[in-house]
Amino acid sequence: MSLDLWSLYTLMLKSRLLEEAIARFWYDGLISGEMHLGTGEEAIIAGVVAHLRDGDAMALDHRGTSALLMRGVDPVLILRELLGYEDGLCGGRGGHMHLFSKEHLTASSGIVGAEGPTAVGFALSAQYLRPGAIATAFFGDGAMNQGMLMESINLASAWNLPVLFVCKDDGWAITTQSKQVTGGDLGERARGLGVPAVEVDGGDVSAVWEAAGRAIESARSGQGPTFLHARCVHFEGHFLGFQLIRMVRAPFREMPGITIPLTLSFLHSGGAALHERLEGLKAVLAAVLATLRDPRRDSANDPLRRARTTLQSDTARLEELEEQVEKELSNVLSTVLAGGPS
């Protein structure tokens, strides 16, 4: 199989547009609970999923939408699931963190790190039932500190199982910086358990595709697991609606809601001492300034933009492709909404 950046870009674009639609639904209050999107990690998902075939399995985390879409699950089913409709992918019972597709041998879990053991089980079964098939586990850097994930990397190594462990490393464990709570180097950790670790730029879909291809080929041919360590940036933070990110993106819309009560409370004569209130004000300003420097708002980290830059050599084809994908998605949306709740 040779690298086809056009089809990888198509996968990423479809996923991005679908997730943007999900975000709109969420902001409109049509989807309940917190929402974790995969915007920013599309290159990692596309670079891996493009190699999968019948019999291959996926264990996904709480950001499973794009992997399912790229694997070929009908986006109408995904959206209707997220909206809680009975004819959704999981009968409206799973929600965005618990998406399953039997046909695609795919299971998700909202519990951080739970992908590891599931993927090991998939791989062990594949060894018996469909030699040559493999399993993938997608998780973040925060999950690497969960015991069950480390146990599963060891199992895959000890039993020489066909697993590709994909660590989508955005540097954050929910809202704590990973480096503050993580010992050593993640790749070294995998190597210490006897699993080869490959570092790859998770924003570069071609690089991920190449690295994942080699690892998957090695798993298919009985050479055991690989740990693919791919760095990325989640543009929405841990979950959608993260206030600081929202504020930096649309300061004029978001600032009044924050600054007016803050100023009022600062001017209020009762309550804490003036210097304490001043400290509070300073803390908020520091948080805003830190967010202005946050890589999550820098579109240079956007894997779609990076792929697009290469493809721009053929502008006509690129525009045609984008138009076609946008049209496809708008058809999906009208189908989803035309159906109404079920």
Binding site: V112, G113, G142, A143, N145, Q146, G147, A173, I174, T176, Q180, V181, T182
Partner: peptide
């Protein structure tokens, strides 16, 4: 103390 995502730990 901020901890890793490691409830058992």
């Amino acid at each position: 103390v901020d901890t890793p995502l490691a409830e058992t730990g």
